[in-house]
């Protein structure tokens, strides 16, 4: 039996209610001041001491870096949750066709290069750890789809270490700068750019590996 959903009268009343909600909220948005700079002036004023040249990266890794640290923890915890729920979906034995086998050989090196570029680019323009991690994760998914399997020796603590590397480095830096600046995550200015790049590099790597691990749908090598 396929799930059907709600009865017609219920659908109608829900729809009516939501149209009302939409109209009310749209009216609220129309009433907002048409011009507002938000926090843009404050960000611009502190860009010189942020260690990077791109405002979004400055907010993500410096001004609101604490949010980003916790958000990396969210991604890691989701992966832990997935692992606790089920072992990895067993791979099929199908051998990919010639096209499919050739594809990753051409694409994956390019994608890794692209990820590295995006990471580097984040300091001055749109880019950074998340974009790089997403491309890296996509490369991993592509490999998995074309018959590549995670080697057994990489399934144990090595994989776990890669998964926590991003949050781990973030936590390490957050606490290590306390003696120098007196405050959590307060990067001393001369090394701010370097520290941010260091965090981003490991964060990008961890995000990529985590996305690939999530795609496996469970813990590789685990049994139930």
């Amino acid at each position: 039996m396929t799930p059907r959903g709600a009865a017609p009268w219920l659908r109608f009343s829900v729809a009516l209610l939501l149209v009302g909600m939409f109209a009310a909220l749209a009216w609220v948005l129309l009433g907002l001041p048409p011009r507002s700079a938000g926090l843009q002036p404050q960000v611009a004023a502190q860009m010189a001491v942020s260690g990077v040249d791109h405002p979004v990266t400055a907010v993500l890794l410096n001004f609101r870096g604490y949010d980003t640290l916790l958000e990396m923890a969210v991604l890691l915890l989701a992966c832990l949750g997935v692992w606790s729920l089920s072992p990895a979906v067993p791979p099929t034995d199908e051998t990919p066709g010639a096209m499919l086998a050739a594809l990753p050989r051409q694409l994956v090196p390019l994608m890794v290069l692209m990820a590295g570029y995006l990471l580097w680019r984040g300091a001055t323009g749109p880019g950074g750890a998340f974009q790089a991690g997403a491309v890296l994760g996509a490369a991993g998914v592509l490999l998995l789809l074309t018959g590549w399997r995670l080697p057994v020796r990489w399934q144990g603590w090595r994989l776990r270490l890669l998964l926590i590397a991003g949050v781990g480095m973030f936590v390490l830096v957050a606490l290590a700068v306390v003696p120098a600046s007196g405050v959590l995550l307060g990067y001393p200015l001369p090394v701010a750019g370097t520290l941010i790049l260091l965090i981003e590099a490991l964060a990008g790597l961890s995000i990529g590996v985590t996305l690939m691990a999530l795609f496996l749908g469970g813990e590789p090598g685990a049994s139930r």
Binding site: N62, S181, V183
Partner: peptide, 13 residues
């Protein structure tokens, strides 16, 4: 009140 990163609200957390 602890300003994470030393920025302080509204820019920081």
């Amino acid at each position: 009140r602890y300003p994470v990163g030393g920025w302080g609200a509204p820019l920081g957390i």
